[in-house]
Structures are given as structure tokens and as C-alpha cells.
């Protein structure tokens, strides 16, 4: 999953980047509202973490303009200011969720996951497709009762496909959402990882859940293959 963090506190940004990358996210950062708005408008993100007190444009304005531009990406807003008024305004501007600083980092992770789920067809925290089960928080995966050991990257790809179960996901899209910008990789990397994934979750079980769609994409079969 690809996340955009917009916050002007270098310390917070560094911590979040480190933490989110360890969770398997591809992370982009911006330090002011203008930059954040541009990035979120230009590129696809699975979720945006947006601080309110930003230089140039504050978080409310960024969220409003993002919605006005038709970008539906889930937004989690952060603030260190008091008050229910901030919370109400955040939600009114188009944010999907709101956290007060200082916040609990595990809670932030859970809320991000929830927001990402909301953008997809899955509602439960353990996405299940057929007998394929993924617990993204614990980074575990099962086919039936058998646990499958996946690398972070493989898990990330599977998770993304899971959220788009039944839909065709272009290789480019997987590249954008699972790899960070500064990782200079090509489509080939995507193909390689999908290959490994199949070898782990499909082949041993005689299943074909990850389908190749001609025209350059993959699809996770709706019934788990």
C-alpha cells in the first residue's frame, strides 16, 4: 500500500516513515500543504496522513481541495490543537478519520488499515478470499489451516490484490503501490514477486488464485482460486 504523509515536523515524519515502511507500506512525505495537495492530486495513494497545522496551506484546505478535485483517497487527519471543533471541521472537510496528537502509534496503524479497507470491497480485518486468509497486522497468511510464510513484499502484493479482489490490477499499479519511489525497480520486479507469491500460495495447494490477465495485469480470483 502506498501512503502519503504530510506533516511539517521532521521528527514525526522520520518516525512515521520508518514505522510504515517496516509495516510494508511505500511511503512518500511532504512538509507543507501546497506540496501535499499537489502530490495527492497527481498520484494515487491508498491513504493520506494529513496534519492540520501546516505551512502554506493548512490541512483543512488541503482536504477540501482534494475532495473538490474529485480525489477520493482516504484521509486520516492529525492535530495537536485542542478541541472538538477541529475534529468536526476535519470530518466536514472530507477527512475520513481524525487522530489527536500525541496518539498511539498502534492505533494509527489500525486506523490506516481500516481506512484502506473502506476503500476496498473487504470489511473485515482479516481479508478472506475463499480459504486464503491474510492478517496484514500480524503479517501472516494462511491457506486453509496451513500457514504460508511470505516476505514483506510478497505480503504487500497479496494484500493489495486482496483489496481489489475480482478486479484487474495493472502491473504498473502494483509497482506504484507496493514499491517506494526511490526504489528504482521495473515492472520485472513485479513479475518476479508475483511469481514467488504463486509458488507459495498457489502451487503447493494446486490452486490458481492469482490469475494473469492478458494486457498486463493480475487478478485475485474471487473464490480464492
Amino acid at each position: 500500500m502506498r501512503v502519503l504523509v504530510v506533516d511539517d515536523e521532521p521528527s514525526m515524519v522520520t518516525s512515521l516513515r520508518r514505522g510504515l515502511e517496516a509495516e510494508g507500506y511505500a511511503v512518500d512525505v511532504c512538509f507543507d500543504g501546497e506540496d501535499g495537495l499537489w502530490r495527492a492530486t497527481e498520484f494515487d495513494y491508498d491513504v493520506v496522513v494529513l496534519d492540520i497545522m501546516l505551512p502554506k496551506l493548512n490541512g483543512f484546505v488541503v482536504a477540501t481541495r482534494l475532495r473538490d478535485a474529485g480525489r477520493e483517497v482516504p484521509i486520516l487527519m492529525l492535530t495537536a490543537k485542542d478541541g472538538e471543533l477541529d475534529q468536526a471541521e476535519a470530518l466536514d472537510c472530507g477527512a475520513d478519520d481524525f487522530l489527536s496528537k500525541p496518539f498511539s502509534y498502534p492505533v494509527l496503524l489500525a486506523r490506516l488499515r481500516a481506512l484502506i479497507r473502506r476503500g476496498s470491497s473487504h470489511r473485515r480485518s482479516l481479508p478472506v478470499v475463499g480459504d486464503l486468509r491474510v492478517d496484514i497486522a500480524a503479517r501472516r497468511c494462511w491457506r486453509g489451516d496451513v500457514e504460508v510464510q511470505l516476505t514483506a513484499r510478497e505480503l504487500a502484493v497479496l494484500d493489495y490484490l486482496l483489496h481489489r479482489t475480482g478486479e484487474v490490477v495493472a502491473k504498473q499499479e502494483l509497482l506504484r503501490h507496493v514499491w517506494a519511489d526511490d526504489e528504482r525497480v521495473t515492472i520485472n520486479a513485479v513479475e518476479v514477486v508475483v511469481g514467488y507469491l504463486r509458488r507459495k500460495i498457489d502451487r503447493p495447494f494446486g490452486r490458481h488464485s492469482v490469475e494473469t490477465v492478458r494486457g498486463g495485469g493480475y487478478r485475485l480470483a474471487a473464490d480464492g482460486g
Binding site: E9, A80, K81, K101, P102, F103
Partner: peptide, 18 residues
């Protein structure tokens, strides 16, 4: 309150991520 909470939030997140 905003100015006080910001460094506290920074520290908390740094430690929790850590």
C-alpha cells in the same frame, strides 16, 4: 497546548515506532 503536544507526540511516536 498545541506547541506542547507537538514535541510530546514526536517523542511518543518515535518511541512507539522504535
Amino acid at each position: 497546548s498545541h506547541e506542547l503536544r507537538t514535541p510530546i507526540a514526536n517523542m511518543r511516536t518515535a518511541l512507539e515506532v522504535g
